Amino acid sequence: MNALVIGGTRFIGRHTVTELLDSGYAVTVFNRGNHDDPFEERVEHVEGDRTKRTDLERAAERDLDVVIDCVAYHPEEVRTAIELFGDSRYVVISSGAAYGSEEIPKREGETALHDCTAEQATDDSQETYGPRKAEIDRVVSDAAADGAEAMSVRPPVVYGPHDYTERFDYWLDRVDNHDRVLVPGDGDCLRHLVFVEDVARALRIVAEEGAPGAAYNVGDRRLPILSEWIELAADALDTEVEIVTANERELAVADLEPDEFPLYRSYPHVLDTHRLSALGWEATPIEEALARTIDEHRASDRTGRKNGPDREAEERVLSVLDTL
């Protein structure tokens, strides 16, 4: 079986290439070559820009069974890819952010998706990310109705080794380096996360077994609240921390707001994963996922500190809370 991964050297794409190689695929990676290549001769490389049709056409010259698209951010990019790779089973990474309705849990085919205007479809801002991913899912569905074997996978926030976003690294760094960890709200923020290796396995399974036109949620089986994540991280790091919660008024003494903290969300975000599980997919136990994540985190130079409040500001809040 021959597979092409669009992307493939940084985070989800990197783990997807590994998953495919471990599953016996011959893998070609298509990207711009801007990042270090961890695979070298184990995979074939095609250098190009996925936003340029002529570059994608060169990649499409191969006899491909599976195409996994890890870096599609605009609907037109997906239309082009499905057209060019029409003889392959195509899977694109969508997002849990595609859902436009706050329901618990969010279910494929039931929970409404965001609308997407023509202006949003070509925008690059974070504000239009969810609408663009929703439109990508509609492109997949429409293409399948015309005979394409195209599917999508919707993850929430992804964590694990080589996470260049460093959102999860922020909390690991706090737990690893401080005795007290400041947590917004009551520490009960519930945001579905997913281990990156589980996303990679989901992409392969959907490529092999998924129904054309379908979207598949993927997420951890367990859903710890934020304070529980910190406790789990402390156990995995073999340390102890005091979790100190702060409401909006208490955070305001240092001009902080809850949503300045990585992974915070005021309303629970939960994805139903039964559709994916029916294909034989299973989530990695969180303790195992954390152990692998932490091993790589400590070996890296990532701290995630740029993603959250300065420690000095947190100390100001902690000092005020100590006087109450």
Rank of each mutant, 00 (worst) to 15 (best):
L20S: 10
L56Q: 03
D235L: 07
G7N: 09
D169L: 03
A202E: 05
R42C: 00
R204D: 11
S152F: 04
R292A: 14
T293L: 02
E197R: 15
T284Y: 06
L20I: 09
A299N: 14
R298M: 09
G185W: 09
D22A: 13
T28H: 08
R265V: 12
L4I: 13
D69V: 01
E240C: 02
T165H: 07
N31A: 05
I294T: 03
L276M: 05
V27E: 08
R249S: 15
V253F: 10
Y216K: 00
N34E: 13
P309Y: 07
A233W: 01
G48D: 02
V71H: 07
D176P: 05
R275H: 12
R222I: 04
V196L: 07
T323Y: 02
C70F: 00
P105D: 04
E242A: 11
R79T: 12
F261D: 09
D173W: 15
L21P: 13
V218H: 05
I93T: 15
D69W: 02
H74K: 15
T273R: 02
R180L: 00
A234H: 11
E282T: 15
L276W: 02
R53H: 02
E166I: 03
G185N: 11
E127Y: 04
D37N: 15
H192D: 15
D37S: 09
S23A: 15
L237S: 10
A98E: 11
L279F: 06
A97V: 00
R174Y: 07
D255K: 13
A118H: 05
E287S: 13
R10G: 00
F168R: 03
N247P: 07
A60L: 08
E314L: 10
R302G: 00
T293A: 06
E312Q: 13
L237D: 09
Y216R: 01
T9F: 04
Y90V: 07
G160V: 01
N31H: 14
V218Q: 02
V253I: 15
D123I: 03
H162F: 15
V46S: 06
E250R: 13
I6Y: 00
R311I: 12
N31K: 08
